[in-house]
Amino acid sequence: MTATEPGAAATASVTAGLAFCELHVHIEGTLEPATIIALARSKGIELPYADEAAFARAYRFDDLQSFLGLYYDNMQVLQNEDDFFELGAAYLRRAHAGGVMHAEMFVDPQAHSKRGVFERVVLAGLHRAIAIVGEETGMTASIIVCVVRDEPVGDAMRMLDNVLESGFTVVGIGLDSAEVGYPPSLFSGVFERARAAGLHTVAHAGEEGPAEYVREALDLLGAERIDHGNRALDDRALVARLARDQVPLTMCPLSNVRLKGIPDIRSFPLRPALDAGLLVTINSDDPAYFGGYLDDNLRAVIATFELTRPEVEALAANSVTASFTGPGAH
């Protein structure tokens, strides 16, 4: 929906005056085609896609794995601190324009260190973006380093050690990438080390994997938030636990549609999750790939489910409650 389409004005009125925290956004997933093309040209990198239209045609995914191949290939243009600064600053400015007051950004250091771009370089660029855009806008942000779960466990531990030794602050550790066949239990030692270092813990679980992966993330990783978590709704006992403990779910509607986790936006399980008393937040995941930033995702669910102003206010409040370093820090 654009600003000129029917219903856009009404949707804007529902979100007016509200400030959201974005808790599930992969900074590499904010790498827009125009930026990829510009960075590739500046570095002499030959791309398989000639222009933005060709990228758009490639962004038709069948599942999570079909997306991940392109996602990691595109990262080759990120090679130095300035690249990560520009990436982070562009996202933060766009997010702020869409009503985000605080963002907790995921980053995949392993995807970069294997190319010789080490943790301290990535973190230096993102920290500079947070500082400069924060001065411009008053927006705050922090970083969650994610374990790439389809890489060896030893690599994850080395990444964590390098991050902790880098001198740059991160607020937490997460778990992402290809889910099926890579249960949370594989990384219990890494997360134990992270918790001992004072990091918050989150994990992708129940996006494509079963509800049992959500339970493992809670019990074995000590996850304080579940990223996605859709499949948790298949398990009544797990739903009751999530509701009782008010474990936040960082859900991503447009992402679920584009990756065919659900057939269409009407199938997004927002109503069942809210009706069950779950602490749901709305997020963009990888907005450059999935068709929208946080405000776009909000417009989609508001229009589809005819959310009332109090319901949208509750989603905004949930995002603050679930945050680690924003106004609702806990």
Rank of each mutant, 00 (worst) to 15 (best):
M101P: 00
V312Q: 01
G172K: 00
P6M: 06
A19E: 14
G99I: 09
P272I: 11
D235H: 12
A273Q: 10
L294F: 08
D63A: 13
T308R: 09
A237L: 10
G209D: 07
M105R: 06
S185P: 00
F268G: 10
D286Y: 00
E224Y: 13
A40M: 07
I132S: 09
L87T: 09
P253M: 14
P272W: 10
Q246Y: 06
E119G: 12
I302L: 14
D63Y: 09
I265R: 00
G172A: 03
Y91N: 01
A288F: 02
E311N: 02
A58V: 15
C21F: 06
H112A: 04
R149P: 11
I262F: 11
F324N: 00
H127M: 11
T137K: 00
L92H: 04
V133A: 08
E135V: 07
R225H: 08
P183K: 08
T4V: 10
R128G: 14
L279E: 13
T2M: 02
Y293K: 00
D285Y: 04
Y293M: 06
R128E: 15
L274N: 01
V107A: 13
S255G: 02
T11A: 14
K43W: 05
V117P: 05
Y289I: 01
V14T: 11
A273E: 10
V122L: 14
A34S: 15
G17Y: 01
P183W: 11
D275R: 03
G206W: 02
F61W: 07
A223I: 02
E5L: 11
M101W: 04
L233N: 02
G44W: 00
S166N: 04
H200Q: 12
A3C: 04
A243C: 12
N74Q: 10
S166E: 02
A97Y: 01
S66T: 15
V100T: 12
D63F: 11
R236D: 14
G138N: 13
L123K: 03
R41F: 02
